[in-house]
């Protein structure tokens, strides 16, 4: 009952806050345990020390707090977006890497990389309300906007686990290519994309049948197949364009989603992993893990217009907008 009231409050709170978002860009840096903050003009306006080895980032539904997964000290921490002060901390979450927030704004589905499971953390009570055994090294987590499924990729198991949220069971394990990392869902909710780092492809899963239906490979100029190690995926709201960070191939691939074809490659920096598209979809932020910078791609021109030094091994990017 209390949970219900709380969820209701969250819903109420979510609506009015929308008007004035800061436009700030937050970047987690896993090796230096810092969060860097960029303003709307892509200038670094500050940084703060976070919990240890911060990787996954997400805002709370009302965007007042930033949720950070810290694998180094087994913590999920929440920072106030305006003051950047620690608000709340959940300890003893084993090696959290990435996570997604359920549409109820309360349940965090977390991949626990070292313990081969996905857990559900209730942000209201701090209780862990669910444990789902996965293959080894679970990584990417994506919850469908209708709250029906949570998908979890197991890097070392080459599997995508499908958690039926209502029934709270692992409904299916789908075989995918080697080392699945991150997900993207087409806006119509019909296709789930999963990047497979070692196989060098993005596999496409049909959400209705939960089967793998296709695969997309990459061949950027001057790079060998072995260097193509895709990780993060971004997609526009119209579901026409997608971007895939190609890791050691130092490029981001631009994809025509309907035709499932690569239409361009953009050289961005060393080992790009994390991606984020700006709200107006004019800029793509790219976290280059081995050159410690954020490349900003002008989406219309398909070119890097700026590279901004941040902390050591930038990982994830989120924008408060």
């Amino acid at each position: 009952m209390r949970a219900l009231i709380f969820a209701g409050l969250l819903l109420l709170a979510a609506t009015p806050a929308r008007a004035e978002r800061s436009g700030l860009v937050f970047v987690s840096n896993e090796r230096s345990s810092q969060i860097f903050v960029l303003d709307r003009n892509d200038v670094v306006v500050g940084s703060f020390a976070s919990c240890a080895r911060p990787r996954g980032l997400h805002f709370t539904k009302d965007h007042t707090q930033l949720i950070v997964a810290c694998g180094g000290d087994n913590t999920i921490a929440m920072y106030d977006v305006a003051t950047r002060k620690l608000v709340r901390r959940f300890r003893d979450v084993p090696d959290p890497e990435t996570f997604d927030l359920a549409p109820n704004g309360r349940d965090l589905y977390i991949s626990n990389e070292d313990s081969a499971e996905a857990t559900v953390l209730n942000l209201e009570t701090g209780e862990v309300t669910g444990h789902f055994p996965t293959g080894e090294e679970p990584e990417g987590v994506l919850i469908t906007p209708d709250g029906k499924f949570a998908f979890v990729a197991s890097e070392a198991g080459n599997l995508v686990h499908v958690i039926d949220i209502a029934a709270q069971v692992v409904k299916k394990d789908i075989f995918v290519s080697e080392r699945p990392r991150r997900f993207a869902l087409t806006p119509d909710g019909k296709s789930l994309w999963v990047s497979c780092e070692i196989a060098g492809v993005v596999d496409v899963i049909d959400v209705a049948s939960l089967t793998r239906t296709g695969s997309l490979s990459f061949a950027p100029r001057g790079m060998t197949r072995d260097e193509v190690t895709p990780v993060d995926i971004a997609m526009n709201r119209a579901g026409t364009r997608a971007w895939v960070a190609l890791g050691r191939a130092n490029n981001v691939a631009v994809i025509d989603v309907q035709r499932l074809e690569v239409i361009d490659y953009i050289l961005v920096g060393r080992r790009p992993w994390g991606l984020r598209l700006s709200g107006d979809e004019t800029k793509l932020y790219v976290a280059n893990g081995l050159s410690d910078d954020i490349a900003i791609v002008d989406v219309a021109r398909g070119k890097v217009v700026k590279a901004i030094p941040v902390g050591i091994i930038p990982y994830a990017i989120v924008i408060d907008e």
Binding site: T134, G135, E136, S154, G157, N158, L159, D173, I174, F175
Partner: peptide, 9 residues
């Protein structure tokens, strides 16, 4: 032990 999930699948 690592391949448990593959065994399950």
């Amino acid at each position: 032990r690592d391949v448990r999930a593959i065994g399950r699948a």
